[in-house]
């Protein structure tokens, strides 16, 4: 098998991950932004400040090249994975383990659009507030009624099949379809926000530039994300209860 897959555009930059120290922990020679020391070829620990986008040499955009992401993940896995450090000393093993764990977390987060957006908001605007427990304002009435129906269904279900139960099931299934539609709509508007954000980043890449505009988009995204989480949890609840 041939694994000399050189990334066309990324090869030049793929060796420039920020490292924890500028000096090799082992031979003390200067490490010039590479993950292996140029002198003694020991693996270097990744910087604690490294963010997931930087880890994959990606700009902080929300539409990302998934093939590039996967390819870089595989390349970096080949560099850091503990399997390749089995015969090395304990320090190198520990570094490989730490780097690998970080890389896996970074890949997992960026691969999923929702997690990617949540991570970006955390990076750009500090901690994301916990997922709200209140339903979205425009769904408030509907959700209250739904909760009641769901409760009645749960009480009836153990008593075996009946016409009443079947009617409730139908009603809940219709509700679920409606909520699934809402979820899809939210995801579409989230995608619009992703595009807005990316366009803004293209013309104002520095963190300080267009700060107000950026913060507005981030807040709007967070609002949609919380609503979507709420609706999705509802849908999962319905799926579990009514099948």
């Amino acid at each position: 098998m041939d694994h000399q897959h050189q990334a066309q555009a990324t090869t030049a930059t793929s060796r420039e991950l920020p490292m924890a120290r500028s000096m090799c922990w082992h031979c003390q020679s200067e490490v010039t932004g590479e993950y292996l020391c140029g002198q003694c070829v020991k693996v270097q620990p990744l910087s604690r400040d490294l963010d997931y986008f930087a880890c994959f040499q990606l700009p902080r955009l929300l539409n990302i090249d998934e093939q590039h992401l996967e390819k870089t993940f595989y390349e970096l896995s080949r560099t850091f994975h503990p399997d390749f450090y089995s015969t090395k000393d304990e320090s190198e093993k520990a570094i490989s383990l730490g780097n690998s764990a970080f890389l896996n977390a970074a890949y997992r987060t960026l691969k999923d659009p929702i997690q990617r957006a949540e991570y970006l908001i955390r990076l750009e605007a500090g901690a994301v507030k916990d997922i709200r427990s209140n339903p979205p304002a425009d769904l408030f009435e509907e959700v209250l009624e739904l909760q009641e129906t769901l409760e009645t269904f749960r009480q009836l279900a153990p008593k075996g099949p009946s016409a009443g139960l079947e009617a409730l099931r139908k009603k809940l299934q219709a509700e679920r379809e409606h909520l699934e539609k809402r979820q899809a709509e939210m995801e579409a508007s989230l995608q619009d926000k992703f595009n807005e954000w990316d366009q803004l980043q293209e013309r104002a890449a520095l963190p300080g530039q267009a700060r107000e505009e950026k913060n507005t988009i981030l807040r709007e995204m967070q609002e949609i994300l919380s609503n979507r989480t709420y609706v999705r949890n509802m849908v999962n609840d319905l799926l579990e209860t009514t099948g």
């Binding site: 098998m1 041939d2 694994h3 595989y74 080949r78 994975h81 399997d83 390749f84």
Partner: peptide, 16 residues
């Protein structure tokens, strides 16, 4: 095969 990877002989395979 995995033993061979850990021994540093097989370099082109990696299990995640």
């Amino acid at each position: 095969v995995q033993a061979d990877i850990l021994g540093g002989h097989t370099k082109d395979l990696l299990l995640l």
